[in-house]
Each structure stands twice: as structure tokens, then as C-alpha cells.
Write a protein that binds this DNA or RNA. Structure first.
Lengths: 221, 221
DNA sequence: GATCCACTTACGGGTTACCGTAAAAAAATG
DNA sequence: CATTTTTTTACGGTAACCCGTAAGTGGATC
């Protein structure tokens, strides 16, 4: 049973609407904050008082607005909240639509549900909370297709490293030097060339410009 | 005086909250739709009945969901709505944060207000509607600084053309051929090289990979 | 330690991109 | 219409990138 919920969402509109949805679901206590720092603090205090939250609903991306915050965004908040209260169910509410990111949240962060800010987000949130109340997790129906459709190329850390450096203006020779300096192996120019060639071929690209754009869209850069 | 408002917003949460804000502002009649097509139709009908809307509040980006829609997004909706009812005040409500885009909306589309989906969007929307009621336009305070800060490089159509082709995997020789075929001038390889060189220098980039990413972030690609 | 295997590196030739200079063409000016 | 100015193009040398082949390296297995 979910009785005590905390909402972390910086957009006032979204925050208000989620509050309202919680009312409709007859949640006993709903707290809401506009900053990640406040959310974590409330979770800590509630835990300390032996009155822990039953659910954290949080956005992924929070806007900076001058007020100095320790926790930058939803990703960090999830990690830290789990340290404080490992069993806390977490539901993400975000406009993020890249399957790779959402998939990563389930696999790496073990979130319990994901609702996209999209056409039927209010209805979806209700279903999601009801599912979580039963101890199940909520995986948006649309997503299961997307993940299958999605270009399934897996970038290794090494790949990402190279592509990042390229997108910063390094030339391949310099990347090789950079890798040697940081004791990352492999590091030869030849290997860099080969990897890039392989990646491009696998994705059907002819130029690195396409590749960096693709990575940007995938959320890798 | 604003008495009759139409809201075009596909996110249910946002749509609901805007409706609520309109109630708080004691707007006599508030209609809301989740598709651009519906918005335009309602505007047409209202105009036909001699009961035109006093305000259109619309998002910029609408999600596709299988239902075939003629109007793709906010940009087209604005254009078409203005054709039907040229004096209709338009207020954009969007998460879009790129100053270039927002600036363009004011200058090219002559919108009357812009409220970003961000920390105090509900409060901002209220102020904005009140301003529009007085016949003034609402320009977010944060934006006036951003526009000044923004990298003020102006891309010509020609520049954008080249960069688009590069980002699609064309090599420079092919771009030259492409331009010749489409009777776009200038078209020589030499000019293409020079322009790219100039753009890169002006923006402090050394490689085209940086440039395409920059353009992506600026909303040019 | 010998053999195999996968991976990494070195090297070389071909292509494309880079960048300067100078000629040619087009546009602007008087 | 001649002249100046700007823009576009052609050309050439250098550097970076592309891509294949061959040599080298390191780890696993027996």
C-alpha cells in the first residue's frame, strides 16, 4: 500500500498536476519539492523518524537557477536516495524519450517505473502508481517496442571515449597521444582508425559527422 | 479583456495545469485540445460564429501517436491560426530553451508571449496572461540576458545548406556537385572549403564534428 | 614453454580535407 | 562604360584521414 509519497519536480505545472493525481489516488500524505536537495533531505528525515516514504516520484533533469544545489539531477538523486533507503520504490516522470536512457534506468538504477511526459501522462501515472502499489514495476507499453526497434549497436567505453574526443575537436593523432598519456589501451592511431571505420560501417554512416550526431541523439554525448 | 481561451498541449499534465490556471484567472471559457488539428478547427469554428478566441496557448512540439494529423507542431499551428484570425494573440508554452528559437518566434512569427516550462511556469503563465490582457507582450525576464549572451553567429542559408549535407554524410566534392545540380550558387569546392574554414574559425572550432554538434544544439539541424 | 588465437600496432599507398595564392567573374560605384 | 571592390573559382602543396596488409604482442590452453 502506498500512503506516503514525495514528488521531486522543478516544473511547477507538472508538480501541481502530480500532486492532484495523488489526491485522486487518495494517497494519505503527499510531499512535494522543486529541488533534488530538498527531496533527499525529506527522505532522510522521514527515514529517521521511522516514517519512510513509500514512493519517490522524480524528474530526471532539473534546471539550475542560481540557488546552489549539491544534487544536480534525477540520476544522482536516485543513487543517493537508494543509499539512504534501499527499498524505496522510485518512479521516474520525465520527457526523456530515448530508449537507451530509459532502459539504462531500469537495468542500472533498478527504478520501479517510468512515465513519460506525453499525451496520456496523467492516466499513465495513475496506472503506474497502482501497479507499484501491488509491488510490480511499470514499464511503459510503448517502450517495449521501441527497445526492440532501436538500433542495437553497443558502444564500448573505448568507443565512447574516442567519439567524445573527436566531438571536442581532437584529431585522431592527438587522440592516440591522449590515450597513451592516460594509460588507456589500446591507443594506437591504427586501432582508432579501425574502430571508427567499424562503427561507421555497422551504423551505415560514411562520415564521423553523422556518427557524432547519432551519438548526441542517443544520449551518449 | 481575455474571456475565451484555447489550449493546445499534448501533455496531459501540462494541459490540466494550464486549465486550472485559467480557472484561477477567472477566464469565462477555456477550451483545450491535445492535437494541433483540433485547435485550428476550433479556432475556425469560433471565428465563423463571430465568437473568436481571445488567446491561443500552445506548445511547440507535439508527439506523434498514430492518429494522422495534418498539422505537425506548434510552428505550423501558429502560421495557420494567424491566417484564419490574424489578430489572435498567441502565447507559447514550451520547454524549448534555445534563445535562437525563442527569439525567432517573436521576430518571425510575432508571437505575443513565451512561457518556458520550468521552475515557476505556473506563476509565469499568470503574469503573462495578465500582460497580454493589457495588450502588452510577455518576454521572459531570463531570456533578455540569454539573447545577449548567446553566440551571435549568423548562419546564412548557404551555410546551413552545406552543414546539413555534411551531416548527412556528403563529402565536400559531392556537395559541390549537388549544389551545381540544383543551381545553387556559389558551388565550387573551393568556396565550400573557405566557408567551412571561416565558420569554424569564427566559432573557435577545429573540426566539422564540433560544428554539426553545435548546430544541432542551436536547433539549426 | 610451444602453439594457437585474438587483438594491437606499424607501415604504405590512395583519397579527402585543409589552406594559401592568384586568376577570373560578378557586383557595385562613379 | 570603365574602374574598383567583392566574390567566386582554379590550382597546388601539405596534412589528415581512410583502408588494406603484414608484423608484433599478450593471454589462454595443453
Amino acid at each position: 500500500m502506498i500512503e506516503k509519497v514525495i514528488i521531486a519536480e522543478d516544473q511547477e505545472f507538472a508538480n501541481l498536476s502530480v500532486q492532484r493525481t495523488m489526491e485522486e489516488l487518495q494517497i494519505r500524505q503527499t510531499d512535494y519539492v522543486f529541488y533534488c536537495d530538498d527531496a533527499l533531505q525529506k527522505i532522510k528525515i522521514a527515514k529517521g523518524k521511522q516514517e519512510p516514504y513509500d514512493l519517490l516520484i522524480t524528474d530526471l533533469y532539473f534546471e539550475e537557477d542560481g540557488t546552489a544545489q549539491k544534487i544536480a539531477g534525477g540520476f544522482d538523486l536516485i543513487k543517493l536516495a537508494r543509499e539512504v533507503q534501499p527499498d524505496l520504490p522510485i518512479l521516474i516522470l520525465s520527457a526523456e524519450s530515448r530508449p537507451a536512457t530509459i532502459d539504462m534506468l531500469f537495468k542500472q538504477f533498478a527504478i520501479n517505473g517510468y512515465v513519460r511526459k506525453a499525451r496520456h501522462d496523467a492516466k499513465e501515472l495513475k496506472s503506474a502508481v497502482e501497479k507499484l502499489a501491488k509491488g510490480e514495476s511499470y514499464y511503459p507499453q510503448a517502450l517495449s517496442q521501441m527497445v526492440k526497434q532501436v538500433n542495437t549497436y553497443e558502444f564500448s567505453d573505448f568507443d565512447i571515449n574516442i567519439i567524445k574526443l573527436i566531438s571536442q575537436g581532437y584529431q585522431q593523432k592527438e587522440i592516440s597521444e591522449y590515450l597513451k598519456k592516460h594509460n588507456i589501451r589500446p591507443s594506437s592511431l591504427s586501432t582508432i582508425e579501425k574502430r571508427l571505420n567499424q562503427i561507421r560501417e555497422e551504423l551505415g554512416f560514411s562520415k564521423n559527422e553523422q556518427l557524432v550526431l547519432f551519438c548526441k541523439e542517443m544520449g551518449i554525448l
